[in-house]
Design a protein around this nucleic acid. Structure first.
Length: 522
RNA sequence: GUGCCUGUAGUUCAGAGGAAGAACGCUGGACUCCGGAUCCAGAGGUCGUGGGUUCAAAUCCCACCAGGCACACCA
């Protein structure tokens, strides 16, 4: 039932090779070499065995190569490079949809969770794109994934929003504040402005912002959530949360503290303020209790980097609540907008920020997502607005999408010229010979796609997929330029069409993981 | 001051201890052809600095330098 990836199968063979020599070391999964001229997979274990075996790595590499003849190995120094033969890669080419390494696991992926006090800005866009891709990657690995948005619709910020709506404060600025004020004023009878019930007005405003601004942008950005959970509704878990943490709390100055320092935090944290209100932290404990109650095996959190101090606190609560599953937090670094060569100072309160909607207007959904996912999550992202506006066609997303469109168009052309006749039969008969080196190379690269997804999962890093797709697109464009595909000789034609078809499917699967469309025409 | 992230080509960045890479920009080229949104070639590097671990360090550890973020009875 388990279907192993090609790299995992090779790893096991290498492991056997190592064990037979009586050595117990971790055998890493062979990887895609940085430079593709070395092949599609590469192992460096001969280096690691050298000391144990008292032999030069070169010699061990030759022995290992001998053992793995079926993979067309090339020992070079202490490396063994593999140029995967077509016969081998063919067995792995159909696995573009799912893996089973997380089979049976239930995963909750919480991301975005933007405050419902204003429109989404470009920083949110990055978290949305990353969270969405991470959820897709977990799903690809076989997990059952739920995507969740936590609505921070309680607390002081809502009251401040209410004040801004009433024109009493200047916490939140921007055109949308005026628009919401008009909407609420027209809803006669639902409340009275005169009473200055800021918290109620703010809550109503937050609902409008969520429904009519945030959700609309989310839809437009091509992202969906299985559930939206309201902070207010977590009240019902407050008492139970408090029971869980009770043994580790103390009172001081009328407030209730949790001894998070016992769990590695640098100071104790307040659960209940001296005025009796719960803190955001306590509400969040309640929210996480609600997560636990739903029986997930893995909790994935995609948060902005400004929440990093918060990880320890939630970890503490989960430990006290005896959560036995995995808790994975991925912190997404900030986005700096660059305009006229200078960073733009963004402030939600001043209303001086670029919204995600504006960005989408400028560069489009696909380009925006792709740019967000090109950089590693740990890197501060400089998003050059001018560059994105002016030079959209130079964006790498088009480079990758073009591969897909090109193959689609190629097949249309082949069909219209009646050059596909016999292709399906050929695929069933003897398709694994007669491929040339550059065709073999591309098929080999496609066959390790699932291994790249596993790498992206292990690192929780969608940019692994982005880089892979750019590499693959580059190989195919280069191939396309060198070799004419719709040639007279049917056998040659079919093998080249087959390579093209496999590339198309792989690119499509990869783009799907990133949430980017794979157009048939551009 | 403390914690987290970052420092690689002119610029933006990939590089899970092993073989220095891409894109953009620059220079010069490519089929009367299946989509030129493509391809090929060239120039361009003390991997922030200094130590340490290792057969092997851009990668791990320590110190320093620089930038960003966070350090609330805000969320």
């Amino acid at each position: 039932m388990t279907s192993k990836t090609i790299a995992e199968i090779v790893r096991r063979e290498i492991e056997n090779f190592v064990r037979e020599r009586g050595i117990e070391i971790d055998v890493p999964v062979p990887e895609k070499p940085k430079n593709l001229q070395y092949g599609e997979l590469c192992s460096d274990v001969p280096f690691k065995l050298s000391r144990h075996l008292q032999k030069p790595p070169e010699k061990i590499a030759c022995e290992l190569a001998e053992r793995l003849q079926w993979l067309n190995p090339e020992p070079i120094g202490g490396f063994v490079n593999f140029k995967i033969p077509v016969k081998v890669s063919a067995k792995f080419l159909s696995r573009f949809q799912t893996l089973d390494i997380l089979c049976g696991k239930r995963v909750l992926c919480e991301f975005l969770s933007a405050n419902p006090t204003g429109p989404l800005h470009v920083g949110h866009g990055r978290i949305a794109a990353v969270g969405n891709a991470i959820a897709n990657i977990f799903k690809f690995c076989g997990a059952e994934v739920d995507r969740e948005f936590y609505i921070n619709d309680a607390g002081e910020q809502i009251e401040k929003l209410g004040m801004s709506i009433c024109g009493e404060g200047d916490q939140y600025k921007g055109e949308y504040i005026n628009e919401i004020r008009e909407i609420l004023k027209n809803k006669a009878g639902s409340y009275k402005f005169a009473e200055k019930d800021f918290s109620n007005i703010g809550f109503m405003a937050s609902q409008i912002i969520l429904e009519h601004i945030i959700k609309r942008t989310i839809d437009r950005f091509g992202i969906y959530f299985d559930s939206f959970v309201s902070e207010r509704e977590m009240q019902k878990y407050l008492r139970e949360s408090l029971e869980i943490v009770k043994p580790y709390t103390y009172e001081q100055g009328g407030a209730l503290f949790l001894k998070t320092t016992d769990f590695g935090d640098d100071k104790d944290r307040v659960l209940i303020k001296s005025n009796g209100d719960p803190t955001y932290f306590l509400n969040d404990c309640a929210y996480h209790l609600f997560k636990l109650k739903r029986g997930y095996d893995i909790l994935v959190e995609v948060w902005g980097a400004d929440h990093h101090g918060y990880v320890k606190r939630i970890e503490t609560f989960l430990r006290l609540a005896k959560f036995s599953g995995e808790f994975k937090v991925r912190l997404v670094q900030m986005v700096n907008l660059i305009k006229d060569g200078k960073p733009i100072q963004m402030s939600k309160r001043e209303g001086t920020y670029i919204t995600l909607d504006e960005l989408i207007d400028e560069v489009g959904v696909d380009a925006a997502k792709f740019i967000y996912l090109t950089k590693s999550v740990d890197t501060h992202l400089d998003f050059d607005v001018d560059l994105a506006k002016k030079k959209t066609t130079e964006n790498p997303v088009y480079y990758v999408q073009y591969t897909h469109a090109r193959v689609c168009s190629l097949f249309k052309e082949a069909e219209s010229r009646n050059l596909l006749e016999g292709y399906e039969e050929w695929k069933k008969q003897d398709p694994w010979s007669g491929f040339e080196e550059d065709e073999r190379k591309i098929l080999g690269l496609c066959s390790i796609f699932p291994d790249e997804v596993i790498k992206a999962y292990n690192l929780i890093e969608p940019s692994v997929i982005t880089s892979y797709l750019i590499d693959l697109a580059s190989e195919y464009h280069s191939f396309y330029q060198r070799k004419r595909i719709l040639v007279e000789d049917a056998r040659v034609r079919f093998s080249r069409l087959f390579v093209s078809e496999v590339v198309r499917k792989t690119v499509r699967s990869g783009l799907e993981l990133l949430g980017v469309s794979a157009p048939e025409k551009m």
